[in-house]
Nucleic acid binder design. Structure first.
Lengths: 357, 357
DNA sequence: TTGTATGCGTTATCAC
DNA sequence: GTGATAACGCATACAA
């Protein structure tokens, strides 16, 4: 009776045992062959063939849970988003997915809704699911402390994309913000603009400083003077959308200040869109009355009218790079994952900037 | 020696056994208590207390894989997106997440990149991971055949949000497109517009027809005549972004046709943005020269200048509704999930429409 | 009300 | 080159 029990599976779920019986080989051999374990190198080609065929015919699907329980490998990589509604994230995601596609790994996504508690909670969840690696997509502010803590508790290859946390022992993939700031201001300058208003990013965001450094370097190199009266700064905030509000408000403020400016460099595209709105409300339009340049090249930048000239972050590539680093670390066994990787930005010409006449 | 083996776990992973030993109860009791099984009703309060405390102290984390292997439950719900880069999806996602939060279920996201093959592949992947329910977020075209097939192979509660596939045995959650079309045209009409251009959605998209029906009903009820010379239709396409291109092109076409129109109703927000661009290229602007209304209320609609007046789909609610239906079916054991659920649209006033003077 | 015994489907370690 | 056997960590039927 006990011997028969395996036979009476009602839901006709095919197990490895079934394949073994049908093919005439032992479960071990079947397992080795079907999971392409190293040992399968020593299995006769004919045997492999027969086993594979049988599995195919029976429609065998390995049980993920049994496999993971036994092998201690989940074949998953955790992807922790800080806020998926930020268009910045989506393309990064795509890059990650593409890089993971075809490997044995599948991404598990969690969105923290820019809430710290959720972030930690989901991190725990991912660890519980035994993800073998971790990619954090960070936009704006996020507290890397929690990540560090968790990551050290159960060390695994971790990469943060969008934030430089390389000082900690975690890998980072970011765009070269300094070069981006330089490119942006250079573009406006090359168009003939000299009276340029600047909206800096939030103080606590390291990106802000980097981009600013790029601007200052350009100013130094070209004998251009930054007029502090034409500079504003976004306030620290946790929601990306606040860039729009901020851009709108600060631009209105700039307009009221009676400091003439023929061009405006916004911290990012959302800020630029806000600036556009403020301009319109004052009866002005870009680029006729004022050129505007953004940063990021989120999808919206191309869809607004006028299209926003901007500095593109290669987001898909950044995502892919992050994924590849995790994969490499996983593959090579070394816990590599530390160190900073910077990708070059790129000027994208659209219609919001024009030559000063 | 054998007896000791449990003790020598190197990575200090705490198992249920450890909790049992430490607390002095048997593994089964501990299991019953910690997983809050029905039987735990009969366990002495004091026992529960002691077991919970011990687990807490030891830092016990149940092994997801062992648990799922044994219980045949994955505690996951598959979420299959047709294209995450469509802003339409993101809010739906959020709704799903929020509804699932706090339940024992966690969503597993897969993005098909509007490719049919990927769709099927990921569907398989999800089944392999033994998701207990399925939510498909469908925008634009998608072939429901595959879903149906898979779903019938291993029946589980499935809901599609964004497409009406209730004819099949799958649940659907959508916005009331007919009411939406009605609302949109009514708004323009109420503003005094009579010469209204219309850009219909792709022919194969059932939503197009529904919205059109709403328009026709309004026309009938108010003695307004739809002039076919002012009507255009988006071509069938699979990428949501094509709405922008289409809107731009068709609007340009309308402008050239010399059929005067004072307002334009676009199939969706992306189409409206395209129309805005075409208008600008012709030296016109909304709402001064032409009022424009969209559909969906994707995040971009609020950020463009002028802000797009639009018909809001309650996306977050739709996602939540879908999730709740799956949860209900799961909870009640019945395979309910069939039937159509329609949520009401809502007019969102922004700046792209104005009274005809 | 609690404990014992067994098996979920795999993979890993040996032995042959 | 292949097979027997023992875990992996948990949940549950059944016994007590």
């Amino acid at each position: 009776m006990g011997r028969m029990s395996a036979r009476k599976s009602k839901s006709t779920r095919i197990t490895l045992q079934d394949v073994a019986r049908k093919s005439g080989f032992s479960p071990s051999t079947v397992s080795i062959v079907l999971s392409e374990a190293p040992l399968s190198r020593y299995v006769a080609a004919q045997t492999k063939e027969r086993i594979r065929k049988t599995a195919e015919v029976l429609g065998y699907r390995p049980d993920v849970f049994a496999r993971s329980l036994r092998s201690r490998r989940s074949n998953t990589i955790g992807v922790l988003l800080f806020d998926i509604s930020d268009p910045f994230c989506v393309l990064i995601l795509r890059g990650i997915e593409k890089a993971l596609h075809g490997t044995r790994f599948m991404p598990i996504l969690m969105d923290a809704h820019h809430e710290r508690a959720q972030f930690e909670g989901y991190l725990d969840l991912l660890m519980e699911r035994r993800v073998e690696g971790l990619i954090v997509v960070a936009n704006w502010l996020f507290d890397e402390g929690g990540l560090l803590k968790a990551s050290s508790r159960e060390p695994m290859p971790s990469v943060v994309v969008g934030r430089d946390v390389s000082e900690q022992r975690i890998g980072s993939v970011i765009v070269d913000n300094e070069a981006g700031g330089y490119l942006a201001i250079k573009h406006l300058y090359d168009l003939g603009h000299r009276q340029i208003a600047l909206i800096r990013g939030p103080e606590k965001l390291i990106d802000s400083t980097r981009r600013w450094n790029g601007i200052e370097r350009f100013a130094r190199e070209n004998g251009w003077k930054i007029d502090p009266r034409r500079v504003r700064q976004l306030r620290d905030a946790i929601e990306p959308i606040s860039g729009f509000e901020g851009g709108m408000q600060l631009t209105a403020d700039l307009l009221q200040s009676r400091q003439k400016f023929t061009a405006l460099m916004a911290f990012d595209d959302l800020t630029a869109l806000g600036a556009l709105r403020a301009l319109a409300q004052a009866g002005l339009s870009a680029p006729r009355d004022c050129s505007i340049i953004g940063f990021d090249d989120v999808p919206l930048a191309a869809l607004s009218t006028p299209g926003i000239t901007t500095i593109r972050q290669p987001m898909e590539e950044m995502g892919a790079a992050a994924a590849r680093r995790v994969l490499d670390a996983l593959h090579e066994g070394r816990s590599l994952g530390s160190g900073l990787q910077m990708l070059p930005p790129e000027l994208v010409l659209r219609d919001s900037t024009a030559k000063l006449d």
